[in-house]
Design a protein around this nucleic acid. Structure first.
Lengths: 109, 109
DNA sequence: TTGTCATGCAACCAGAAGGTTGCCCATGAA
DNA sequence: TTCATGGGCAACCTTCTGGTTGCATGACAA
């Protein structure tokens, strides 16, 4: 049978997005791959701090890192953000449906 | 001048969404307002635990509670979820734009 | 080969999160 | 009035988080 990849649980992705510094890291990475030192400059925290945040993002599947020479280069992983966006849309739509039903019930029922 | 309400920072909302139990609470509330005891039943944690989660959600503006008789009834706050959805779409779009530019630069530049 | 730059790893720390329990208060039913 | 029900508050505990520092290592330039 086909590899029907179940989409990942949304909570961990939201949790990864729920930090100001990580959102900034993602924003900077959206301009292209960058090394840890590059990301550390101007971040306000130490290199190790940045590394930890990157690992959280990687754990959620939002970024991916690879070694290039002596540098560790990180880049965005588009797919996972798409999934998060879709799941939020689905939740949102679900609310619409349920609340719509409720409203109809209250008004007409 | 018009009350040009700046939309809230997205990180706290994502952080609130980043928990399995809270997502379940939201799902249950999407069927209509419910009391704390109601939400506690079948949640797997104690009433106080549920209360804490509800407060986190309220802090992010995702739900709103009010006293009715001896019960504390909670309901969804649609607007904030909409904001979160929009900000996620915007981030997603930003990635598209930046990565698109980068790709074009690499290929044509 | 030697020095420097970019990292990784491990230990450590303070504070926040997630949960629990115990106790008290208000409301509404009997 | 009495009692059960729904909740709030506070204290407490354990685990996770976000951040740091110190030290070791691999890659590269001189």
């Amino acid at each position: 049978m086909t590899q029907r990849r179940r989409s990942a649980a949304p909570a961990p992705v939201f949790a990864a997005l729920g930090d100001e510094i990580r959102l900034r890291l993602l924003a900077r990475l959206s301009h292209g791959p960058m090394s840890i030192s590059g990301l550390t400059a101007g971040s306000g925290i130490t290199r190790q701090g940045v590394t930890k945040h990157l690992r959280v993002l990687a754990g959620a599947g939002l970024v991916r890192g690879s070694r290039r020479g002596k540098e560790s280069v990180w880049q965005l992983e588009r797919r996972r953000l798409e999934e998060a966006r879709r799941s939020l849309e689905q939740i949102s739509r679900q609310w619409d449906v349920s609340l719509g039903k409720l409203k109809a019930f209250v008004e007409n029922g």
